[in-house]
Nucleic acid binder design. Structure first.
Length: 554
RNA sequence: GCGCCCGUAGCUCAGUGGAUAGAGCGUCAGCCUCCGGAGCUGAAAGCCGCUGGUUCGAACCCAGCCGGGCGUACCA
């Protein structure tokens, strides 16, 4: 509809110039928007004001010239007017909105899927939590954001892969192994002080018990390093399994689990360091190897190989991102915790150094989650083993509510997650509000069947009866759905979709309270059923992209 | 100190150049012989942190300041 208006303006402006009503053929970009206030029409354009300088005419005169030459073949316009400082307002004939209902039914679960991706290969990497302990709520937020962004991009025509990067190398894994090994030694009767820099959680002891059961005291007979290494591998594998299960029960599934260690094993890390050294991006100083990240806006250069010969996390990350491009992805999206924001410029630098464009790499920084219960904060610390796991949260408040709440805010702002609030079935907790629409419509449709309306289909005479303001408003709002998705995809902001769904839900509830769907008139009932079924489809479609279920009953 | 993010109704937050700034909660006043009240209607409530600038037009863009969060390792 918006596009139609744009076309009308475009042609009218050209015609106006040909007839000498405009002084210049030059046109600014035509921007059509939906005014917030209904008395300003369904659509408006500011073109007259923007063009004033070029045309050397007053906005009002430009506006009237354009209106004069509008050719509305389809008769969609009820009225046009010049208003305020020079806006042109368009009022759409209410019945002109109806055809979108047919579109929704025909396209069904593909409604809104405009192909902006054109098959571009894009990778979304998210969660990627260290396999040293269970996921907590903060990871959950990243998981939902990444998952939903990926879903939306996929829906909009991108060829998307979801990836989890397993940091199964480096010091934190060694510490994990050491933690388990010490617990194991305790089980073997040794009295040792458990170091503070080791992982304190109970799960560490559980793994030690398992190892103790299967291996007995044989680990003590090995040298300590290989025993720790055994414990590390054992625990990391278990933890990754656990993470995978937790994510699955949260509705998140990855296409690929990529191991950091494999980058070392395959020599990719050494290869990229060597390559960058030749190209002078990496140099030696004080016995260490440094990457010239200052060339890319970083405040100082960063070490990739320490003077003790060990590679830093940054080294494998350079190789990792090179590898992603080597695997054919044209664009990379990383979802990180906002506390890692200082890391962006150096990874981006490594990507530019390899000849890729800066805009092929995008980092979504998800801000932190403050967990509360009934208004009081819950302390969280992984190292100290004090945290509420994601799994516990899902069990307590449910997957749908958890996911939805994470998406009711822009990820750029910190989020208070109150366990008590999340369980409430009120408007504090909007997931129920939206799901309720879906369930309610299911119920209406069931009732309709009882009354003998088995087939809900487009029937001209029935659709023509949809002319209540609330009905037109619902249809109009559903017309906007594809644009909302497009914006969600382009900005990679799933919360836009969340807010849209809450808005649509609100319009539906209002309509439901004011008008009956199932009336004494069969034709009217059919038309209204056709309408609410469309609403249900859009709601279901949106919820699905957010990974939230659309229940028939609640 | 420097860098990134955030300052919008009592609270939690939407709103990335348009006309009269929105929603939920909370407060107040209403709506159940009727398709699911997990719902609806209405009201009160705002120097959009401050000051300048750009623009026909700024919550939004730019600069500076004031608050708050996070980061600032040869850790990951």
């Amino acid at each position: 509809m918006k596009q139609k208006i744009k076309n009308l303006i475009f042609h009218a402006a050209h015609k106006a110039y040909e007839h000498g009503d405009l002084t210049s053929p030059e046109l600014p970009e035509i921007i059509v928007e939906e005014p917030k206030i209904s008395s300003h029409g369904d659509f408006s354009t500011n073109i007259a004001m923007v063009a004033a300088a070029v045309q050397k005419m007053s906005p009002a005169n430009i506006a009237s010239a354009i209106i004069k030459h509008l050719i509305d073949d389809e008769k969609i316009l009820e009225k046009t007017e010049v208003a305020g400082p020079g806006f042109i307002n368009f009022f759409i004939h209410p019945l002109s909105w109806h055809p979108v209902l047919l579109e929704i039914h025909n396209q069904d679960d593909r409604y809104g899927a405009i192909d902006i991706g054109k098959g571009e290969k894009i990778q979304v990497e998210f969660v990627s939590s260290n396999p040293t302990g269970p996921l907590h709520v903060g990871h959950g937020r990243g998981a939902v954001v990444g998952d939903s962004v990926a879903n939306i991009l996929k829906f909009c025509g991108y060829d998307v892969q979801k990836e989890y990067y397993i940091n199964d190398s480096g010091r934190q894994i060694y510490t994990l192994g050491k933690s388990v090994f010490i617990r194991y030694k305790e089980l073997q009767g040794e009295k040792i002080h458990f170091p503070e820099d080791c992982y304190q959680g109970d799960y560490i002891r559980d793994y030690a018990i398992e190892i103790n059961d299967s291996k007995g005291k044989t680990l003590l007979e090995k040298d300590e390093e290989s025993a720790i290494s055994y414990c590390a591998r054992f625990a990391a594998t278990r933890i990754v399994e656990q993470i995978r299960e937790d994510l699955n029960s949260f509705g998140v599934e990855f296409d690929c689990w990529y191991s950091e260690q494999s980058l070392f094993d395959s020599g990719k890390v050494d290869a990229v360091i060597e390559d960058f050294r030749k190209k002078k991006f990496i140099y030696e100083k004080d016995g260490a190897l440094w990457f010239k990240t200052t060339n890319y806006g970083d405040e100082k250069d960063r070490v990739v190989v320490r003077n003790n010969g060990q590679k830093t996390y940054f080294a494998s990350d350079i190789a990792y991102h090179q590898d992603k491009f080597d695997r054919g992805f044209e664009r990379l999206i990383d979802v990180w915790g906002a506390d890692h924001h200082g890391y962006v410029s150096r990874v981006a630098g490594s990507i530019e150094a390899s000849g890729r464009r800066r805009d092929q790499f995008h980092v979504i920084l998800v801000h932190l989650v403050n967990l509360l219960r009934g208004g009081t904060p819950i302390a969280m610390s992984t190292r100290a083993g004090e945290f509420v796991t994601l799994n516990a949260v899902i069990k307590e408040v449910g997957r749908d509510a958890t996911r939805f709440i994470f998406l009711t805010r822009s990820y750029e702002s910190p989020l208070d997650f109150d366990l008590e609030l999340a369980k409430q079935k009120t408007n504090d907790n909007p997931v129920f509000y939206v799901q309720y629409v879906h369930a309610r419509i299911s119920s209406i449709i069931r009732k309709g069947k009882e009354r003998g309306i088995d087939e809900i289909r487009w029937k001209e005479g029935a659709i023509a009866l949809l002319r209540e303001p609330e009905e037109i408003n619902l249809i109009k709002t559903m017309t906007r759905y594809p644009e909302v998705l497009k914006a969600s995809a382009e900005f990679m902001e799933p919360h836009r979709l969340t807010f849209y769904l809450m808005n649509l839900a609100s319009l539906f509830h209002a309509y439901y309270n004011k008008h009956r769907v199932l009336t004494e008139e069969p034709l009217l009932s059919l038309g209204r059923l056709y309408l609410v079924l469309a609403v249900q489809k859009v709601i279901r479609n949106g919820l699905t992209l957010l990974g939230v279920s659309a229940p028939e009953r609640m």
